[in-house]
Design a binder for these strands. Structure first.
Lengths: 113, 113
DNA sequence: ATGCAAGTGCAAAAGCATTATCATTTGCAA
DNA sequence: TTGCAAATGATAATGCTTTTGCACTTGCAT
């Protein structure tokens, strides 16, 4: 089963328990660790959402965080050019971009003032 | 005194102790907290370097992290256009970009193989 | 059936960054 | 000098995430 958004440990645990109610967090941690080591999962440390994981092998992309519903969405594409940083004499190997704001759904549930 | 790079708690503590050797971490935490609340400092949660702080009021910019020496540098400017994300129906309020690689200094201390 | 390696559940522990407590100290005004 | 509010030092405690030890299961080959 594939998941379009990165998941937090808590969400993974929750989903795991939905399938195997008796499963323990230690087991989940152990397996996630192995999956990361073996390259199946990528670990993401999100400034606001904390540690998350997503399947590896996806196209280069970034993430959007909704401050209202506290969830993370994948965004296709990337407009970043690593080269321009080289000006400062640094060698850029990669980068991450985090967008913050309000997601589509939340912006429809606006509160009247 | 101004500092061109964001600092980690540990570095702040270290610098503080250099000036006032008896200073305690609790005091440093308390004062950082107040400085953030009053808007003098900005808190940055860096995926690899952890929690850092920098003076507020700077021009919009991003950061480069050197994997060799484990330090963070400020990069001037920004090529990100928040608008393009709106395609997905989201309202982007702001963003952060983290670059990773090897800094100028470290790339000169390359090891022969 | 037996044995063994790998995988689990459970509970405790370890690591952290951060905060709370409280007695003591400092700066400053009366 | 006295008094008081605010700041500090030192330490313990908190909250969270992640890891470990250990006994118990499971799957699979012998």
């Amino acid at each position: 089963m594939t998941c379009p958004q990165p998941l937090r440990i808590g969400e993974i645990l929750q989903k795991a328990k939905a399938v195997i109610p008796s499963i323990d967090q230690a087991t989940v941690y152990r397996n996630i660790k192995r999956l990361v080591e073996q390259g199946w999962l990528l670990k993401i440390t999100h400034p606001l959402a904390g540690t998350m994981y997503e399947r590896s092998g996806k196209e280069h992309h970034h993430h959007f965080y909704c401050r209202k519903c506290d969830s993370v969405f994948e965004l296709p594409g990337c407009g970043i050019n690593d080269e321009h940083v080289a000006l400062a004499g640094m060698t850029v190997e990669d980068h991450e971009v985090f967008f913050y704001g309000v997601c589509h759904e939340c912006s429809q549930h606006l509160q009247r003032t």
